[in-house]
Structure formats: C-alpha cells, structure tokens
C-alpha cells in the first residue's frame, strides 16, 4: 500500500493553491470520487493478504476521514475569507421603483374581495345628469340631499358633478342585462368648504347586486365577510337599521372601535363603533325607475367613503393632502 501520509501531503500541497470553491470540489472528486485516489486504494484490498485485510481497511477509512476533514476545513476557511472581502453590514442598494397612491392600493384590496365573489368593476361619468344622480335613486325634488348647498352644478338642475357613485348603479341597472354584480370605486364631488376632514372631491366605493331571491341575509353575510377580510377575522361588527332614500329596508354596518375596544373614545366619537358601510335592499322605486320589475328581481347595494380608511391606514390626518399632489413616498 502507498503511504497514506504521502497522499495527505499531496492533498495539502494542492489545497495551498486553491483559488475557488470549484477547485475544492475538483479535489474532492480527485480524492474521494467514485474513481478517486481513496477508492483506488480500497480496490487494492483484493491483493492484500487475508490476515491483513481488516487492518488495511481500517487504515484506508481513517485516511478517508482525514481527507474529508481537510477538505471541509479548507472549504470553511475559503468561504470566510471570500466573504470577509465584503462588508456584509453595508445597507443594500434598493432598485428604484415607483409607488402607487394609497387610495389605489386600498381600492385594489377591496376589488380583490369583491371580484372573488363575482363582481365586475363598473364605471360611469363624473359629469352626471339629474336623472341618474337623483331622480332614478328615489331622491325626490325637495329631498335635502339635493339642496344647492351640497351639489356642484354645471347647469342647474340638469347637469352636475356626481355627488355619489350610486349614479353608476342606476346606469348599470338601466343599461346592463340582469343578473348583475358590480362594484364602483370613484371620485365624487360636493360643494363643501374644504377642511381636514372634508374635501370637495373625495372617493367612494359602492357595490350592487341584482338577482332573484336576494335577501337581507345575503347583504348581511356579504358585508360582514367583507369587513372581516378588511379588518381581520376577529373584528366585531354591528348591523343596524339605517335610513337611506335609495334603499328599503336600509342598514348600516359598524365595526367595533379598535382604539377603545368598544368603550367609547374620541376616535369613535364615544360610540364604541365606527360606521363603515351604508347599505340596504334596493328600493322598489329605484328598480322600477331603471326598468326592473321588483316582483321578479331584488338586490342590495352598499357604499362607503374610502378616504377615512386610507387616512387611518397611512396615518394621514388631512384629507386635502391626499389629493393635492403633496404625497411623497418613502420606503
């Protein structure tokens, strides 16, 4: 048998010249591979005298583990030295990508839920007519919501800036085939003096379903599933009666105030709950106004303001900042 010491010296020499981890891998193959030097030694066992076979085998195995150890040590050392050439504590260089507006991010999140339930995003004009914004929505001529003080008119009374995204619902009900499931995110306008909580333009998100046998139970299930998607499965909700002219029966959905756990605080105006959604069964008058037979079809509608949600999520305390070009994103 060759001197195992020689084999080890040979390896040590070669390790001194290693330049990359590939070199180490090649040495491993040369020494420990299937046809490597160690295996060649082992195959020679057939030429060894029977009484020495055991001793020979042990020697080769010892040699094998010594070689393995040497190779492993080298590998470790090699990795350390190469890594040490870099200061791994240096901050990473982030690629420059842009950022979506917070309102877009929130709209996308809500779209995600309703598209899962089969709703399509539907659009309509912002310059609306009295017919779609008010008349068809069961907002009679003398209704307070129609007062000049709230509506921005382009040509009173016929043309105006839509005061809610519900105008898109009357358009969809008038134009599209039934059954119908739509959601409408979009800009709406009110004639208000701007302040930190009110702006003359803001965002609403509305939804509508018209089908056969739609009930308040479907409305309640949908809205509660939605707020749990948005605020977490543990969210406590309150589903209560609330009046809106375009629905009957009407309902509001509130979530328990996170800041006081329902005890009442300044954030929830001491109500313990925060109003999230207004909703209800589409008023039979509205269905009729859109050419739908309320004896055959029923539906529900819901709506929410988006801005407060966005502001809470991103810690923005002035709605005017959201839409004035003053947002600068930092990651």
């Amino acid at each position: 048998m060759d001197d195992p010491g020689k084999l080890l010296d040979n390896l040590r020499d070669k390790l001194n010249n290693v330049k990359s981890s590939t070199d180490i891998e090649n040495l491993r193959i040369e020494f420990l591979g299937r046809n490597g030097l160690v295996n060649q030694l082992l195959q020679k066992i057939k030429d060894v005298a029977p009484d020495q076979k055991k001793e020979y085998g042990q020697k080769v195995n010892t040699l094998k583990s010594q070689i393995e150890e040497l190779l492993q040590d080298e590998e470790k050392e090699f990795k350390q030295t190469t890594t040490l050439n870099i200061d791994i504590t240096l901050p990473g260089i982030k690629p420059k990508v842009g950022n979506l507006h917070p309102t877009t991010i929130v709209i996308r999140k809500i779209n995600q839920f309703f598209r899962y339930l089969g709703y399509s995003v539907y659009e309509g004009p912002e310059i609306e007519t009295n017919e779609f914004n008010f008349e068809k929505l069961n907002l009679p001529k003398d209704h307070p919501a129609r007062e000049l003080a709230d509506t921005l008119y382009i040509q009173e009374p016929e043309y105006l800036l839509r005061t809610h995204t519900s105008s898109v619902e009357t358009r969809a009900m008038t134009q599209e085939k039934l059954p119908l499931r739509i959601v409408v995110p979009g800009k709406v306008y009110r004639n208000e003096t701007s302040n930190p909580t009110n702006n003359s333009m803001f965002y609403q998100y509305e939804g509508l379903i018209v089908d056969k046998n739609i009930s308040m139970a479907d409305l309640k299930g949908t809205l509660i599933a939605f707020v749990k998607f948005l605020y977490g499965q543990e969210t406590k909700t309150r589903f209560r009666c609330k009046y809106y002219p375009q629905v009957e029966p009407g309902a509001g959905l509130d979530v328990e105030c996170k800041f006081c756990q329902g005890k009442g605080c300044s954030v929830c105006k001491y109500r313990g709950f925060i109003e999230v959604l207004g909703s209800g069964m589409v008023h039979p008058n509205v269905l009729k106004n859109c050419g739908i037979d309320p004896k055959v079809w029923s539906g529900f509608a819901f709506g929410m303001g988006l801005d407060r949600l966005v502001m809470l999520q991103y810690g923005i305390n002035d709605i005017r900042k959201l839409y004035s070009g003053e947002l600068v994103y930092k990651i």
Binding site: P179, D211, A217
Partner: peptide, 16 residues
C-alpha cells in the same frame, strides 16, 4: 337576520 352569501352563480363578466 342570518348571515349568508348569495348562492347563485356569478353573472356575466362586464368589467370595464
């Protein structure tokens, strides 16, 4: 009032 989701199949896709 019980909570449930509308059980009818989703209608035609009309996304803008």
């Amino acid at each position: 009032i019980p909570e449930r989701l509308p059980s009818l199949p989703p209608p035609k896709y009309i996304q803008s």
